[in-house]
Design a protein around this nucleic acid. Structure first.
Lengths: 229, 229
DNA sequence: GTCTATAACGGGATAGAC
DNA sequence: GTCTATCCCGTTATAGAC
C-alpha cells in the first residue's frame, strides 16, 4: 500500500534530481533525502541506480511516444499514401512533447529538463537507458519524412531530423532562461508562442534547398569587400 | 620545463574525459591516469577540479570566440551600417566552431564533443565556468541579428538564436552517430556537406515568418483532410 | 516492505619530503 | 615541480533484523 506511494515518491524525486544534476551528479542518497525514504528502499524497488533512471525516463517517454505514433498513424491514414505534409509530421513529433512538458510543469515537474539532459549523458548510458524508447519513433518518423520529401536523399533527411532534435532538446533544457542574456527577455520556452515559433523555424529549415555547393568549411567565408585571413 | 608538458598533458586528458563523461562523471584520478601524471600535479597546476574545467574550456573557447568577433567586425565594417546579411552573420558565428572542431578532430581531439556537452552541465556549473566566455559574443551577435532583421522583435531573434545554438551543440556532440539509426548513413557531422546543410537550414529557419497565430499548443493539430505538402 | 548497520570502495583535497 | 602518503568524507550496494 505504502509501497506504491514510496515508489512514486522515489521516481518524482529522482526525476527532479537527474534533470538538474545529471546521472553521475546525482547520488542515491540525495534521492532518498528528497523523497523522504530509506536508502535501501531504492534498491528494493529498482535494484540499481541505472535501472532507476530507466524507469524514471520510461514513465514519461512511453506514453509520449505512443501519442506521437498515434498522431502519425492518423495522419498517414488520412493521407491515403499521398504523403503527409511536412508541417503535420513535425507537429505530430513535437506537440506531444510540448503538451506533456506543459502539463507536468504545471505540477512543478521537470520532465522537460530531464529529456533534454538525458540526451547529453555519456553515450553508453544513453544507449543503455534511452535508446529503446526511441527506436520505433525514429524509424516511423524518418520513413514518413522521406516519403513526404521525396526529392531529398534519406541521409539528408536524417541529418535535418537531427537538427530538429537539437532544437527540441536545447529548448527543453531551458538553459537559456538563466544562461542567456536577460535584456532580451526571459521568455518561457513552453509558451504557445514559442512552440509556434519553433515549428515555423523547423519547417522552413527542413524545406531549405541545399545551396549550390558554393562554400565549404575549408574555404573562407563569402565576404566581398574586406580582406581577410 | 617539464612543467609545461605536464600541464598540457593534463589539459588534453581532461578535455577528452570531460567530453566523454561529463564533469561529475570524471574523476581527477582518471585524469591523472590518462595523462600519466601524479594526482597532486593537478592541484598544483590548477587548484581544484572546477578550475581545471575552466581552463580546459577557455583554452579552446577564447581563440574561437575571438575569431567569431573578428569576422563579425569585418562584416560590419564592410556593410557600413547597412546591416549585415543574415547568412553572413550565421556564417561568422558557426564557421569558427566548425573550423576548430575539424582541425582538432584531425589530431584526435574532442573539443567538439566537449563544447556540446558542457552546455548541458548543471546550470550552476555552466554559469561558473562557461558564461564568461560567451557574454560578449552573445551580445554582439544578437545586436547584429537584430539590426539585420529589423522587422523581427528582439525577443523573437533571441529565441531563434537559441534554436541555432541547439542545432550547433547537438551536432557537435555527435551523439546521433551512434544513437541514431545506422541505416540512414553515419555521416560525419563535421563534413563540409553537413556544414552547408546546417547553414541552409538555419538561415531558412531564421527567416521563417511567424505563422498567423493559428494553432497553439493547447489546440489540436491542424489535420484537415490529407491534403497537400 | 521498510528499516539499521556496514561492507567495500572511490572521491577531492592537502601536508610535507625531496 | 613532482612525489608519497594520508585525511576525511561520500558513494553504491548488500546483509539481516523486524
Amino acid at each position: 500500500m505504502a509501497s506504491v506511494e514510496t515508489k512514486e515518491r522515489i521516481l518524482d524525486a529522482a526525476e527532479r534530481l537527474f534533470a538538474e544534476r545529471g546521472f553521475a551528479g546525482t547520488s542515491l542518497r540525495s534521492v532518498t533525502k528528497a523523497a523522504g525514504v530509506n536508502l535501501a528502499a531504492i534498491h528494493y524497488h529498482f535494484g540499481a541506480k541505472e535501472a532507476l533512471l530507466r524507469e524514471v525516463f520510461a514513465r514519461r517517454a512511453a506514453p509520449m511516444n505512443q501519442e506521437r505514433l498515434r498522431r502519425l498513424d492518423e495522419l498517414e491514414t488520412a493521407a491515403q499514401g499521398r504523403g503527409v505534409p511536412l508541417e503535420s509530421i513535425l507537429d505530430a513529433f513535437l506537440r506531444p512533447v510540448m503538451h506533456l512538458q506543459r502539463d507536468l510543469a504545471a505540477e512543478g515537474d521537470v520532465w522537460g529538463r530531464l529529456i533534454g539532459r538525458v540526451y547529453s549523458e555519456p553515450v553508453d548510458l544513453v544507449e543503455a537507458v534511452l535508446k529503446d524508447q526511441f527506436v520505433e519513433v525514429s524509424r516511423r518518423f524518418m520513413d514518413a519524412l522521406s516519403r513526404s520529401l521525396a526529392d531529398m536523399p534519406p541521409a539528408e533527411v536524417h541529418r535535418r531530423m537531427q537538427f530538429v532534435i537539437g532544437v527540441l532538446t536545447h529548448s527543453l533544457t531551458g538553459l537559456h532562461r538563466r544562461a542567456g542574456l536577460p535584456e532580451y527577455g526571459g521568455e518561457n520556452v513552453d509558451s504557445d508562442d514559442s512552440f509556434e515559433s519553433m515549428l515555423a523555424f523547423l519547417a522552413a529549415g527542413f524545406r531549405a534547398p541545399l545551396r549550390s555547393n558554393g562554400a565549404s568549411v575549408a574555404e573562407e567565408m563569402p565576404v566581398k569587400e574586406a580582406s581577410e585571413g
